[in-house]
C-alpha cells in the first residue's frame, strides 16, 4: 500500500465515522425524550456532519480524482465505507444511543487530541477544530450515561443492557493494521492501540460512577473500518442517505 492510499483510507475512516454516526444521531430529530435532548442531539449530529465535510473533503483532495466530500458520501457503496461497526449500530432506545455515543466520543476525543499534533497540517487543523466540539460531546454523553446508569432501577437496567450489547463493538476502534502503521510511521496519526489504555481508564471511571459493570470479555467484532464486512444495517442507512443522488444523477441541489 502506498502512503497516499493509506492516507486516503485513514481520512475515509475519520469521515465515515462522523458521517455514519451523525446520520444515526440525526434520526432522533423531533423524537427525543425531552426538548433539551432534541436540541443537544441535533447539535451533535450537526457537528459530526460538519466534521465529515472536512475529513471527506480532504480525502477527496488526497485521492486526487476529483471526488468531493458529497461524492464520497453519496456515491460509494457499503464496501467502500470505512466507519467502525459501532457507528452504524441502530439507535435502539435513547439509552442505547447515548451509550454508543459515549463509547465512541471517549475514543474520538483521545484520537483528536493526538491528531491536533499531526505532522500533516491539514489533519492537525481539522482535529483542532473538531476536538473542541467533541470535548463537549463526551462531557454530555458521559453525564447522560452516569445519570441514567445511576438513576432508577429501570434506567439502570436499560443502560447495562446497552453496554452489554455494544461492548463487542468497542475493540475495533483500537486495532492496528497496515493503514494505521503507515500513518503512525509518518507521524500523521497514532496507532489506535496506543489510545486504549487512556480510554479504558476513562471508561472505567465513568462506568463506576454510573454503577454499571463492564462486561468481562475482550471479544471484538471487526470488518467496519477495513470495509471487509459491515453489518446489514449500513446498507439500509445508505439507501436513505444516498437516495436522491442516486435517483437523480447529476442534479444540483
Amino acid at each position: 500500500m502506498t502512503s497516499d492510499m493509506a492516507f486516503f483510507e485513514f481520512l475515509c475512516r475519520m469521515g465515515d465515522n462522523t458521517l455514519v454516526l451523525g446520520h444515526r444521531v440525526s434520526e432522533w430529530c423531533g423524537h427525543a425524550p425531552v426538548l433539551e435532548e432534541d436540541i443537544a442531539l441535533a447539535n451533535t449530529a450537526l457537528d459530526l456532519i460538519g466534521q465529515t465535510q472536512m475529513w471527506l473533503g480532504l480525502a477527496g483532495e488526497v485521492e486526487g480524482e476529483g471526488r468531493s466530500a458529497d461524492d464520497l458520501a453519496m456515491l460509494r457503496d457499503a464496501w467502500d465505507f470505512r466507519n467502525v461497526l459501532l457507528a452504524e449500530q441502530p439507535n435502539g432506545d435513547f439509552g442505547q444511543t447515548m451509550m454508543r455515543q459515549y463509547l465512541f466520543d471517549q475514543a474520538h476525543v483521545l484520537l483528536l487530541e493526538k491528531l491536533a499534533q499531526s505532522s500533516d497540517e491539514r489533519v492537525a487543523g481539522i482535529a483542532a477544530k473538531a476536538v473542541k466540539e467533541v470535548t463537549y460531546h463526551v462531557e454530555r454523553s458521559r453525564d447522560t450515561v452516569i445519570g441514567l446508569g445511576d438513576g432508577t432501577s429501570e434506567s439502570h437496567r436499560r443502560m447495562q443492557a446497552a453496554l452489554d450489547l455494544l461492548w463487542p463493538y468497542v475493540g475495533e476502534m483500537f486495532t492496528d493494521d497496515e493503514v494505521s502503521g503507515i500513518m503512525a510511521a509518518e507521524g500523521i496519526a497514532p496507532e489506535p492501540s496506543s489510545l486504549r489504555a487512556g480510554w479504558d481508564a476513562a471508561v472505567q471511571q465513568t462506568m463506576s460512577e454510573a454503577t454499571l459493570v463492564i462486561p468481562d470479555s475482550g471479544f471484538a467484532h471487526a470488518g467496519g473500518k477495513t470495509g471487509f464486512r459491515h453489518s446489514e444495517h449500513l446498507g439500509h442507512m445508505l439507501t436513505q442517505m444516498q437516495w436522491l443522488q442516486r435517483a437523480y444523477p447529476g442534479a444540483r441541489w
Binding site: 441535533a42 458520501a73 443522488q245 441541489w253
Partner: peptide, 23 residues
C-alpha cells in the same frame, strides 16, 4: 427529510433549522 438530504451541506442546514425550531 433530514436522513434523505441530498448533500452534506443541505443536511447540515436542515438540521440546524429543525434545531432552531426546537429552540
Amino acid at each position: 427529510w433530514i436522513t434523505r438530504a441530498p448533500t452534506l451541506e443541505r443536511k447540515a442546514i436542515l438540521l440546524a433549522k429543525v434545531q432552531d425550531e426546537a429552540g
